[in-house]
């Protein structure tokens, strides 16, 4: 990253397009990783293509594209890196993980409120009381609509101790 900062300060920055530089570098690394992952699979010949042929050459193409972006970032003026706002993604991701972890083990009636309460804090304007009311209402609404009316395979409440499962 120091290279980037140096680039940003100078009058003649080394990297003229930080956005392209980072994107290109990432693509090269990702492509190399994919090629490495495919190393155990055979590529076959053009006449009888193996499972690795298309993914490997696609990855090579992506890597080359990344290389071009990196080269371009030294030559052409481009945009600076954009700021990432982490609050929203962090809370929403946490809520997704919570939902994934609890939907099967305890069921929707617990998973949904937990994940919604977590997600809600992703907004800077969160109002806890309002969020709680909304969460309860949404849980009931979704349970009725998706499970009762639409008959979706959502486990509602799983309590092995009381051998409840519906």
């Amino acid at each position: 990253m120091s290279l980037l900062n140096k680039g940003g300060d100078g009058i003649h920055p080394v990297i003229r397009s930080p956005q392209n530089f980072v994107a290109g570098a990432f693509l090269i690394v990702a492509a190399a990783f994919v090629v490495w992952m495919l190393s155990g699979l055979s590529q076959g010949t053009l006449r009888t293509m193996g499972p690795a042929m298309v993914p490997r050459w696609t990855a090579v193409g992506i890597g080359l594209g990344g290389a071009v972006l990196v080269v371009l970032s030294f030559l052409k003026e481009g945009e600076a890196l954009e700021r990432w706002h982490l609050r929203g993604p962090i809370f929403v991701l946490a809520s997704l993980v919570i939902f994934a972890a609890t939907i099967r083990s305890v069921g929707f009636l617990v998973a949904a409120p937990l994940s919604m309460l977590t997600a809600g804090f992703g907004s800077r304007e969160v109002r806890p009381l309002e969020l709680v009311i909304f969460t309860v209402a949404m849980t009931v609404f979704c349970a009725v609509v998706f499970r009762v009316l639409l008959n979706q395979p959502l486990p509602m409440l799983v309590l092995p101790a009381l051998s409840i499962q519906f």
Binding site: V92, F99, A112, M116, A119, G120, L131, M138, F146
Partner: peptide
């Protein structure tokens, strides 16, 4: 409905959609 609540709804709809 303010977005601070709406996005929570979107997230849970996506969860239900994926899980189903």
């Amino acid at each position: 409905v303010p977005y601070r609540l709406m996005f929570v709804g979107i997230v849970i709809f996506c969860c239900i959609g994926v899980y189903s």
